[in-house]
Design a protein around this nucleic acid. Structure first.
Lengths: 122, 122
DNA sequence: CTCCTGAGTTTCCATTGGAAACCTTCTTTC
DNA sequence: GAAAGAAGGTTTCCAATGGAAACTCAGGAG
């Protein structure tokens, strides 16, 4: 089965979706949302280094694309929970693998960098 | 088994690797390099819309991290081939899944966007 | 001579990203 | 009753990144 879409094509709408996923913050957010829903400030604390602006922007884009859902609860102060949608859940395994690949292969990457830099300096 | 690295931590070196992978051009390049080695201008033509500057920069970074290899052949004009390294090959399945997820789910994403935009306009 | 190809580098401008301050509503603390 | 705090953002500003296009260099081909 072939698809009408081709991510190698400029101007294909899939490119826009790829740009959404090919973002370090988006990947970390999707990874973090596996499991129970998480509140805004909880995400902000867990994903160290993300700014509120970028977190807010990224959540909005992921919600628009149907990957996550946003639920508001009328508590005081108001509580907002984010969670993966069924569509977002289809990405969970892939995102987890990619986001954590670095943790498993960091030593190999560091060794490669050292070799490369040594050769470049020579 | 746990790892010394944690991609949720700011300042963890894995963050740098995640930033490398979380890039639309890097993903498309890695995906395209599955299979036989590919030359610079061939990549440029296949990955529509990439500029020479960004292609060159991205290839250099991926090479430094040990994910791809660069081979120069003394033809005229000189030929340069890029290929996945064994380390890069460990990412092949994940990258392919992520890069092509949009192709398989584009209709669902477009529907979600339409719903979101309609609700926002109301 | 001039043009063409492969593999880049350089230049320039527009968009994006991060840091930090600000906003709003309600509650608790002094 | 003034101030501070928590939740969930928005706004502002500057620096870094991204894309478009031109330029480089070497060696053929016409």
């Amino acid at each position: 089965m072939t698809y009408a879409y081709d991510v190698y094509e400029d101007r294909c709408p899939t490119r826009l979706v790829l740009e959404r996923l090919a973002d370090k913050w988006a990947l970390l957010i999707l990874d973090r949302l596996e499991g129970d829903p998480v509140r805004f400030n909880h995400l902000r604390r867990d994903i160290k280094g993300i700014s509120q602006k970028v977190l807010s922007q990224t959540l909005k884009k992921l919600e628009r694309d149907g990957l996550i859902s946003r639920s508001v609860f009328a508590t005081v102060p108001v509580t907002v929970e984010y969670a993966l949608t069924p569509l977002g859940r289809t990405l969970a395994d892939t995102v987890r693998t990619l986001a954590h690949w670095a943790e498993h292969n960091m030593d190999a990457v560091l060794a490669a960098q050292a070799t490369y830099d040594a050769a470049a300096a020579a």
